[in-house]
Amino acid sequence: MNAFRLVGDLCHLAAIVLLLLKIWKSRSVAGLSGKSQILFGLVFVTRYLDLVTNFVSPYNTIMKVFFLSSSIATVYLIYTKFKATYDGNHDTFRMEFLLIPCALLAIVVNHEFSPMEILWTFSIYLEAVAILPQLFMISKTGEAETITSHYLFALGSYRGLYIMNWLYRYYYENNFDVIAVVAGIVQTVLYCDFFYLYITKVLQGKKLQLPA
C-alpha cells in the first residue's frame, strides 16, 4: 500500500458517501444516471468475486464489502425508493453499447483465459466507461447539482491517483499490469472535460452548467 493508492481509495469512498448523502438529504435522485450506477454495481460484483476466496487484508475486505453494498444500495434507492424522482427521460445512454464491447474485449485481451480472470478484466474495462451514461445525462440536461459534481470530481480523482500508484509500484515494486493501467488512463481521460468545468466553474462557486 502506498499513499497514492490509499488516498485514491479514500476518494472513491468519499465519492460513494457523497452520492448516498445527496440522495438521502435531498430525498431525490434527480440528475443521477441510474445506468451508471448499475454499471458500477456490475463492476464491483464481477471484480470482487474473490471476496471470500482470496483474503488480502482486513482493509481490503472491509472496503470491498462497503463498495459492493453501497453500490447495490444506490441502485436500489434510484430504482425503487426514490423512483419518482428518477429522470429516466434524460438517462438514455444504451448500456449494451458498453457491456458488449467490454465483454468481447475481456474475452480477447486478458492475462489468462479463465472465468475469474475474464470477469476481473471485464470489470476493469467496464469501470473505465461506466461513467459515460452519467456524463451523457449531464450533457443532455446541461447542468449538474453541485454535490453531484463533487461526487464526479472525487470519482474521477480516485482513478487518477491510482495511475500515480501504478507508476510508484512500477518503479519501486517492479509491479505492472498493462490492462489496469491502460483502462485507468482511459477512465481518467474521460473525466478531463468535466475536471476543466469543475475547476473553472464549481470551485468559483458557480453551478456546473455546460455551455448551451
Binding site: 493508492r5 481509495d9 472513491h12 474473490d50 482470496n54 488480502v56 487484508s57 481490503n60 472496503m63 470491498k64 463498495f67 492475462h111 476481473w120 491510482y162 500508484n165 515494486e173 517492479n174 509491479n175 505492472f176 499490469d177 490492462i179 489496469a180
Partner: peptide, 10 residues
C-alpha cells in the same frame, strides 16, 4: 507473474 500481485488492489 507480475499481474497476480495486482489483485491486491480494490
Amino acid at each position: 507473474c507480475m499481474e497476480k500481485q495486482m489483485k491486491d488492489e480494490l
